[in-house]
């Protein structure tokens, strides 16, 4: 699958969940390329901005959409890697911050 194809699929998914893909399409295509790279090497779409172990049960919380996406979008308007965002975030009506890591270190 290509990042462009995955973009179409996830754009629909995001809208169905009342959120959006980051409007910076080049940035999103880069993220999706990272997801597909991880799927190729690990067998699952591990978050491209977190170091995966390659052991699925250990990485289950960071398989995209990660377990932290919903609370992050609620609090910051964006998920950790910036793929999924709120409408307000895309419109620029809320302040854009570096989303801190919600995941507990193991």
């Amino acid at each position: 699958m290509t990042p462009e194809k995955l973009y179409e699929i996830l754009d629909k998914y995001a809208k169905s969940r009342g959120i959006e893909l980051n409007k910076d399409k080049d940035f999103v295509l880069d993220i999706l390329a990272g997801l597909l790279k991880n799927e190729e090497r690990y067998g699952y779409r591990s978050c491209p901005c977190r170091l995966a172990t390659g052991i699925q049960w250990k990485d289950s919380d960071i398989i995209c959409p990660c377990k932290y996406a919903e609370p992050d979008i609620k609090e910051y308007g964006s998920c950790y890697c910036g793929l999924y965002v709120s409408k307000e975030w895309n419109e620029g009506s809320i302040k854009r911050v570096v989303v801190p890591e919600r995941r507990k270190q193991t």
Binding site: F27, D30, I31, A33, G34, L35, K37, N38, P48, C49, R50, L51, C81, G82
Partner: peptide
Amino acid sequence: SLSTCPTCK
């Protein structure tokens, strides 16, 4: 960095 991370890029 991570090779898959756009923010790292």
